[in-house]
């Protein structure tokens, strides 16, 4: 029989092991809570840059994409119930959807509560769908991951079309 101290130590070690397991699971589930989101976005940005470069020449972008000095600073609603509305963009990510407690609250029954998110990364804005029911579309393509959003490119959330302006 092991000595009293060993037994006691093992007893506490087992409790520590149980909690260690719990914390390992919690650490692994962190990414779902959105903490690791910027990491993922950065990666998909790299991946997204290549097809963008290939298609860059033929697409007609209104402003020539010289080294852009600063990020776009305005979000304009071009079509939909709130057409004409202009929103000033800062350095913070913004969420758009039907909910009332977010930056861009849309009067659009086709939009989900938290529909999509725009977030700054370097000198560009990225658009990311937040698991909406009807999807977010850029140039008619449904977003499957965070994508670079160029100035002047229309994107659609529900029945509302928006674009970035410099």
């Amino acid at each position: 029989m092991a000595s009293e101290i060993t037994v006691t130590l093992l007893r506490f070690a087992f409790l520590a092991l149980l909690w260690l397991f719990v914390f390992m699971v919690m650490a692994a589930s962190r990414r779902d809570l959105g903490i690791g989101r910027n990491l993922r976005a950065a990666r998909s940005a790299d991946a997204g840059a290549q097809p963008g470069a290939q298609a860059g020449a033929p697409t007609s972008s209104p402003t020539p994409v010289a080294p852009p000095p600063a990020r776009a600073s305005q979000l304009v609603i071009t079509d939909g119930a709130q057409a004409g509305a202009v929103m000033r963009l800062g350095d913070e990510p913004i969420t758009m959807g039907r909910a009332n407690d977010i930056e861009v609250s849309l009067e659009d029954d086709y939009a989900s509560g938290h529909h999509a998110r725009l977030f700054p990364q370097g000198s560009r804005w990225f658009l990311e769908d937040l698991g909406s029911t009807n999807g977010t579309f850029v140039n008619g393509n449904r977003l499957t991951r965070a994508t670079v959003l160029e100035v002047g490119t229309d994107f659609r959330v529900g029945r509302t079309t928006m674009q970035l302006r410099a």
Binding site: L15, L18, W19, F21, V22, V25
Partner: peptide
């Protein structure tokens, strides 16, 4: 396992 051990088990259920 005591309250601490039972707490760990309940945390597992919660997770």
């Amino acid at each position: 396992l005591g309250l601490i051990g039972l707490g760990a088990l309940l945390m597992m259920y919660m997770l």
